[in-house]
């Protein structure tokens, strides 16, 4: 394969490290930009430079935006007394895309892991306890992954919040939308059966 010049090659290598891209797709993307320098590449490079300057973690919830306080935390209409706890910003964005939740969020930034030396103090759990008092919250929804690590962290947070008297709930586990029973794994079917509800 013919090799592009040094700087371009370095750009391709940087792009190839992005999630979802590999060496081939990075090469295609860079070539596309090179062909449309004015239309695509310059606006993109300016946007990248700007966002690299302005992006910051929200001081309250841990979401990433270009303000010190993210738009969700700044929006008074979202002070519903309900707080949704997620592992990562990507989970927050997924919940926002789904659009069903009107309250505010709290991003932990990971899960408890003794093996990786990630303790409660590395996870913004103390900040969560502070927010319960400061924001007069009534309900905390734990939207954590259904993995051993996620469930351990959920259990830990539930224990930690017990003395505050706030009501703690977790996302339901079971049948996905449009899901067919026949194709589900046994564990999911059992969870769906246990979490059945009256119609």
């Amino acid at each position: 394969m013919a090799r592009a010049a040094g700087e371009i090659e370095a750009l391709i290598a940087l792009m190839a490290r992005l999630p979802g891209l590999g060496p081939r797709s990075a090469r295609r993307a860079v070539l596309h930009m090179l062909k449309k320098r004015g239309m695509v590449m310059e606006p993109l490079s300016q946007a990248l430079a700007r966002v690299a300057q302005t992006a910051r973690d929200c001081r309250v919830c841990g979401n990433i935006s270009d303000e010190e306080i993210c738009p969700i935390c700044a929006d008074e209409k979202r002070a519903t007394g309900t707080l949704c706890v997620v592992e990562d910003v990507s989970d927050l964005w997924a919940l926002e895309r789904a659009g069903g939740f009107k309250g505010r969020y709290h991003v932990l930034g990971g899960t408890l892991s003794a093996l990786e030396s990630i303790g409660p103090e590395n996870l913004r759990i103390p900040q969560l306890v502070e927010r319960i008092k400061a924001e007069n919250l009534r309900e905390v929804i734990l939207a954590l992954n259904a993995t051993v690590e996620g469930q351990t962290t959920a259990h830990y947070i539930a224990e930690t919040l017990a003395p505050t008297g706030v009501s703690v709930s977790a996302l339901a586990r079971g049948l996905p939308m449009g899901g067919e029973l026949d194709y589900l794994d046994d564990g999911t079917i059992a969870a769906a059966m246990a979490a059945r509800r009256a119609l």
């Binding site: 408890l112 003794a114 303790g119 409660p120 051993v148 351990t152 962290t153 259990h155 830990y156 224990e159």
Partner: peptide, 27 residues
């Protein structure tokens, strides 16, 4: 096995936070 390895690490690191133990022990 996963939960026990986490708990054993807490034991060796002399972590005393009871809630962390309770969460792993529940799993």
């Amino acid at each position: 096995e996963k939960a026990m390895r986490q708990r054993n690490k807490l034991l060796r690191d002399n972590v005393t936070d009871p809630r962390w133990y309770t969460a792993l022990e529940a799993r």
